[in-house]
């Protein structure tokens, strides 16, 4: 049990967690939607990548691409079929819309989950790794796929950061998260902004799903757990804070890995849940939250 093992494994899993949580936090930050179908969208992406690469013979790269496209399409479907009709409905009182969106996305997630189980069974699937094999890092045998997972996650997060902070389009997103009313007064159409953020979210969730499928494997039974995992990371980091979510993802990833290595793999998630309870008590806005 060498420290380097813990560093490498913790880094890979944390980066994947960050990738999984960042889209979830982005969509909440910008449009105020808690998307409880998040886990299902990731699973759809992973399962489509698996099916495309294996059953349809597309190979790992085209398969991964098909998975990301599936994540993108499913995210947009979520927006158009579930979220937008609730947001624009006149029958639902304004103050109840959040709870309707919450319930709607939860049910949509269950529908997606059952659809995946129906068409592809609930047996876990694994996506072909982009690069197979292992390399030696200072005496630690590490699968290349693990490093690829971390690298792609960090690259995607980096691109998102550039988009938000360095482009005009991104700044509009940022503005929408801070003061949507002010943005509309400046003549921006909020629905257009929301559509953009759902599109970005779809790509992020698709990549996260495919990476997850290649790194750990997924089953339709994981849907709830994946949403809950993203949710706890986001609550820990501060709802809507992208930086907070990133920090929280690494805290969660390393805490889990340390627990698994140093205490017991069977109680891997317990310390994280305790920490979550503690944070909610002591600092309800999360590590870097602003509300």
């Amino acid at each position: 049990m060498r420290p380097l093992q813990i560093v490498i494994d913790g880094f890979a899993i944390s980066s994947l967690y960050a990738m999984g949580a960042i889209g979830f936090t982005l969509i909440f930050g910008v449009s105020g939607v808690l998307n409880l179908s998040h886990g299902a969208i990731m699973v759809v992406a992973a399962v489509v990548a698996w099916a495309a690469a294996g059953s349809f013979g597309a190979g790992p790269y085209l398969g991964a691409l098909a998975g990301v496209v599936a994540g993108f399409v499913t995210a947009l479907a979520t927006y158009f079929i579930v979220v937008r009709p609730i947001q624009t409905s006149r029958a639902i009182p304004r103050e109840e819309k959040e709870i309707f969106v919450l319930t709607g996305t939860l049910l949509w997630g269950i529908m997606l989950q059952e659809a995946v189980a129906h068409f592809f069974t609930s047996n876990p699937k694994t996506v072909l790794p982009l690069i197979a094999g292992v390399i030696d890092i200072a005496g630690e045998r590490t699968s290349i796929n693990k490093l690829v997972t971390a690298a792609i996650s960090l690259a995607a997060i980096g691109l998102l950061w550039l988009l938000v902070n360095r482009t005009r389009r991104g700044k509009v997103l940022l503005a929408a998260s801070i003061n949507p009313r002010g943005l509309t007064l400046l003549g921006f159409e909020l629905s257009g902004v929301y559509l953009q953020v759902w599109a970005i979210y779809g790509v992020l969730a698709g990549i996260a799903g495919v990476l997850l499928g290649a790194f750990l494997g997924v089953s339709s039974d994981n849907v709830g757990q994946l949403t809950a995992s993203a949710f706890s990371i986001v609550v820990l980091g501060g709802l809507g804070s992208v930086t907070g979510s990133l920090a929280a993802a690494y805290v969660v990833g390393y805490l889990e890995t340390l627990t698994a290595y140093l205490i017991a793999p069977s109680i891997r998630t317990v310390p994280v849940l305790l920490l979550l309870v503690l944070v909610v008590y002591v600092r309800p806005q999360g590590l870097l939250g602003r509300r």
Partner: peptide, 8 residues
Amino acid sequence: DTTDFTPI
């Protein structure tokens, strides 16, 4: 519920 078997 284990998903990451690396440590094991």
